[in-house]
Computed example of a mutant assay.
Amino acid sequence: MLLSKFKIRSRYMALAFFLLFGGLTLSWVFASHYFEIMTMDYNAPDLAGTKEEIRQIAIASISNWEVFVDSSMFHIINFIPVLFILPTLGLFTEKRSLYVLRRHRFPLIKKAVYRDVIQYTLLSTFTVVSTYLLYYSIGAIFVYRSLDDIGGFASILPHNFYSSHPYLFFVFMVCTIYLCLAFVFSLLACALVLLLNREYKVLVSVLIIYFLYGKLGVYTQSVWFDIFASFTAFNTMYSTLEAFLPLVLLFIISILLLVVGVNKTVKNPES
């Protein structure tokens, strides 16, 4: 029973890992101009030096932490929450099967639903954090630091921490703000799974909430809604604590939707 439940809950973890890791990689390949560097015409008359010399210089110019991290998010920032929440879609399987079978055991099913939501949220968060840690760990092999100051998110860290330990800074970023982003959006997705009846509706709803929330931050110029800055904490003027503020209201919304979703599921799990 435990093995079968784990299979259900882990079915989207591998997909989320490969899509997120692949998205980060492809975004870096094109946004950093690495693809252009590897495919450009080195026989042009305005280029001085051999093909290998020019290529090495060009690659060296993009082999730094700032370009590596910024370009890896450049093409996926508009739909990044979808890649964060994919593991939570496994909750649909339990909603359509186990919850239907237990619908007459009200006290037990309600407790089970909350427990399952927490487990799916944690699995999703773990997938995101481990993917980023692996991606940045691989990047640490061949990139270097070119800036002394990375921005406001390092404000809570000791002076010159980034200039001395760039890799540890990004590990700190992943294990704090990205962990919280993954947790909140996964919790929101679980609530939507309980409220909606199709996977694509959950994905679209999360994107709509993400864009509306972010646009509200742009129009109001309020740090409380600037969710885009939270995802780009590596390049923000907000302080460490300010980067977390957009998650506060979003977390409250997720909790409210979750309560409504659990009550709806307990009464009619087939809807």
Rank of each mutant, 00 (worst) to 15 (best):
I62P: 12
T93S: 14
I37N: 13
N78S: 12
V69I: 12
L26P: 10
M40Y: 05
P81C: 04
K95C: 14
H75E: 12
I57T: 13
L19M: 11
L86A: 03
T39M: 13
D70L: 02
I76M: 02
D41V: 11
F74W: 03
K51I: 08
F30M: 06
T93F: 08
A44K: 15
G49P: 08
G49I: 05
P45G: 03
S71E: 01
L20P: 07
A16H: 01
T88D: 07
K51R: 14
G90A: 11
A16V: 04
E94K: 13
K95N: 12
P45I: 01
P87S: 08
S27P: 11
T39K: 09
M73V: 01
L83Q: 01
S27M: 10
I85R: 00
E52I: 08
T39E: 12
I59S: 07
F79N: 03
N64V: 02
I76K: 02
S72H: 00
S32F: 02
F74N: 15
K51V: 09
S61Q: 12
F74T: 15
S97Y: 05
A58K: 13
P45W: 02
L89K: 10
D70I: 04
N64A: 02
F21V: 03
L24V: 00
K95A: 15
F30K: 05
F21E: 05
N64R: 04
F92E: 12
M40T: 14
V82W: 05
Y42D: 05
A60M: 06
F92D: 12
E94H: 06
L47T: 08
I77E: 05
V69W: 02
A58E: 13
D41C: 12
R55L: 14
M73C: 05
Q56I: 09
A16K: 03
V82H: 06
W28V: 00
L89Y: 06
L91Q: 15
S61H: 10
Q56G: 11
E94A: 15
F35L: 13
F30I: 07
A31D: 07
T88S: 13
E94R: 11
F17D: 08
A60H: 07
R96I: 08
F18P: 07
N78D: 09
